[in-house]
Design a protein around this nucleic acid. Sequence first.
DNA 1: GGACAAAGTTAGGACATACTAACTTCTTTC
DNA 2: GAAAGAAGTTAGTATGTCCTAACTTTGTCC
Lengths: 230, 230
Amino acid sequence: MPGRELLTAPVEDYLKAIYTIGKGTGAAATNEIAQRLALAPASVSGMVRRLADQGLLAYERYHGVKLTESGRRAALRTLRRHRVIEAYLAEALGYPWDRVHEEAERLEHAASDELVDRMAATIGEPEVDPHGAPIPTKDGSVDETVYTSLADLIVGASGVVVRVAGEDPEMLRYLGELSILPGKRITVKSRAPYDGPITLGSGRHEMSIGPALAAHVLVAPLADRAGKHG
Amino acid sequence: MPGRELLTAPVEDYLKAIYTIGKGTGAAATNEIAQRLALAPASVSGMVRRLADQGLLAYERYHGVKLTESGRRAALRTLRRHRVIEAYLAEALGYPWDRVHEEAERLEHAASDELVDRMAATIGEPEVDPHGAPIPTKDGSVDETVYTSLADLIVGASGVVVRVAGEDPEMLRYLGELSILPGKRITVKSRAPYDGPITLGSGRHEMSIGPALAAHVLVAPLADRAGKHG
DNA sequence: GGACAAAGTTAGGACATACTAACTTCTTTC
DNA sequence: GAAAGAAGTTAGTATGTCCTAACTTTGTCC
């Protein structure tokens, strides 16, 4: 367990949050960390100082925080644990995709690297979790491709859903019912003005979703066929 | 998660320890709890008072502690989690029996009851863990059969190993090498005097083990054939 | 360029759990 | 039944994490 057990659960959560906010390299603001972890900003100030003392963060008072290389590695280890566990719960134990997150959130702090590696091996070394998020490799690299949100697709554009960002179970269940899932192909049929609902085609179905929801659906665009017809 | 998340990991560990020491109904002494959890006795005094305040223990100063019904139920839930996880790690993930304990020790505090139930279902509702210890059922009952220790078997007696008590990995590996495992049949061939080594037959093999080790091997005695021959 | 809002920090305290050192109670033995 | 040793407790302290309340810094807008 290299570098394990030395980090407490709260510390791992901070690092994960900072990584996610800063998407790899970027910085994170105190308030944003606080909000993501549902803590008071004052608590974050305190913790962030300690993490900086441990060399996990670069911290400048009043100017937010950045992961150091060591902090980034720790964050990615936790993220790997989280996502492998999610994938394993879904694959091997039949968990529905809207409930893997909560369970993984606790297990990620208790599972050894060996367990996580065995899980990954057992389900065939998955590259993404059930929401389509990429799983960091053991040596600390991740696919950092930035995908387009469904909310940004123009009318007529098609794409394959690669990922659903966010873990609110209700949202996930709803998207699941609509069959908006990683791997599904969708086409934007129309968009109402003033940020109104977006009408989609997927397979034989047609459906309408709001822009807030659409923003969570990340797609890999396909060749745009709209041009051919108009 | 009925009754979950309310108990911290240390609390669950205390209850489990007290249950194991008191084997169900019995009481536990402060020092014994301290030793089992590798804590100072003073720490136990403090915690035990708090657990009594929460109604999990009956506590009389200077006279040890007893689980209440509610404490016993909590202890058994944790024990179930622990043993199901051990069984699952061995069955589904190929963990060797000498390492399941350590991993389960951490996971048992993080796993939800649902996860544990899914694990149990996936491997066919096991009744014992990889060491042969009985798994409490969901409704809180356990097999409390008391088995004979191999150290107590007389020369000529035969039995089936039902359980190996204790989790020291080195001991488990050693017993594994000797093939002294749950389900194996053994016969006591001879015993050296003054608590000396015990010679066993198991299958075609013959081997000798010390009494301290033999005390950890619990057997279900079979009809004694020694009488027939002498 | 100063005032105000937003963002961030410090101070002081709470809680759970652990520790060591010093004290008390229980048990056993003569 | 008293002394010695074992067992157990209290007192005081430490650590990690959190909180609220009050303060400071930063950034923006006229």
